[in-house]
């Protein structure tokens, strides 16, 4: 029953020896490569710094990518929205494009931490932290976002569905790669989205449950064409409730169908028991409520008001 030294003793001093500030992406990638696994990317730092202080993370070199111009900005490319790797949780909801065409993402970002943290923390960082209930990751997952990852070997694009591996672990290697872009399709007029969050207090609080829903509907026929349901933490990674999504494809947009979908989603996912953020039983019950509410609201936004 001996508890670890790190859980009982704290130091304010962070254990890294070099801080590098590259001016271009190529420079950054070269610095990482030269670091041979000892260097690590830092952007907003809202995860990296506390993790270094907790000694959960070890790095002797930090490569600060926040001055890379190629990683900035929110743009529209056709029907796609593209976010640079440095877009912060404050910038995303401040963009009219995001609010109007990806409202669920705007809401998710606005729920992260505090105004000060949102001014620093990036959406890319939210993804890379690999936390199963991250507030920006869940809506991005529901939006079928894809990310571009750069390394000295070149660029690759990975759909978010394949991005997360385990708690705190993704396909991206922060000792040699940089997440440069996040891309997803903007919601159209026949689409709707919803973001819901459950927490013990109303700000500065990690969630007990996060749910993001995206639907495509035929309002005339009152039919659900497609539904995407992302949930966290119900698995080690941000989770797409694929079975429920499949059951909704082509289904009638009715309260009964949605209630059934909520029941199914709840039965299929297995959140762990957490002393601080809720029992499995409770969170399963909440999945039921959130999937029902999320689908209902998303359908409303898609022009499909339920009777």
């Amino acid at each position: 029953m001996a508890h670890a030294f790190e859980k009982l003793h704290w130091s304010r001093e962070l254990e890294f020896g070099q801080y590098l500030t590259p001016g271009s992406l190529d420079d950054a990638l070269q610095m990482l490569a030269d670091g041979k696994g000892q260097a690590r990317v830092i952007a907003g730092g809202t995860d990296v710094i506390p993790e270094l202080r907790r000694r959960h993370l070890k790095a002797s070199i930090l490569v600060d990518i926040t001055r890379l111009p190629e990683l900035r900005g929110i743009t529209q490319e056709g029907e796609d929205i593209v976010l640079g790797g440095l877009v912060t949780h404050a910038q995303a909801p401040a963009s009219a494009l995001i609010r109007e065409r990806a409202g669920l993402l705007a809401q998710g970002c606005a729920a992260v931490g505090s105004p000060q943290i949102r001014n620093l923390g990036t959406l890319a960082g939210n993804l890379i932290s690999g936390q199963p209930a991250a507030d920006a990751s869940i809506p991005l997952l529901a939006l079928d976002a894809r990310v571009t990852i750069a390394s000295l070997e070149g660029e690759r694009e990975v759909p978010l569905k394949e991005f997360f591996l385990d708690v705190g672990k993704t396909v991206l290697d922060s000792t040699r790669e940089v997440l440069t872009r996040i891309r997803f399709r903007a919601l159209g007029p026949d689409q709707g989205g919803c973001y819901l969050r459950l927490s013990k207090r109303k700000a500065l609080c990690l969630p007990m449950l996060v749910c993001a829903v995206q639907v495509t509907a035929d309002p005339q026929a009152k039919v659900i064409k497609e539904a995407a349901i992302a949930l966290g933490p119900v698995a080690p990674v941000p989770f797409r409730e694929v079975r429920t999504e499949e059951s909704l494809r082509g289904a009638a947009a009715s309260r009964q169908v949605i209630a059934q979908a909520a029941e199914n989603a709840s039965a299929w996912c297995s959140p762990r028991d957490s002393l601080l953020r809720g029992s499995c039983d409770y969170r399963q019950e909440m999945v039921k409520v959130f999937v029902r509410r999320g689908l209902t609201k998303a359908l409303e936004q898609a022009g499909c008001t339920l009777d």
């Binding site: 710094i49 202080r53 000060q116 001014n119």
Partner: peptide
Amino acid sequence: REGECGACTVLLDGEPVNSCLLP
């Protein structure tokens, strides 16, 4: 020292940030 209490807030180019999280 982990961005939770906010007592370290300063304005960086006019925006509030936690100076305890900022190298």
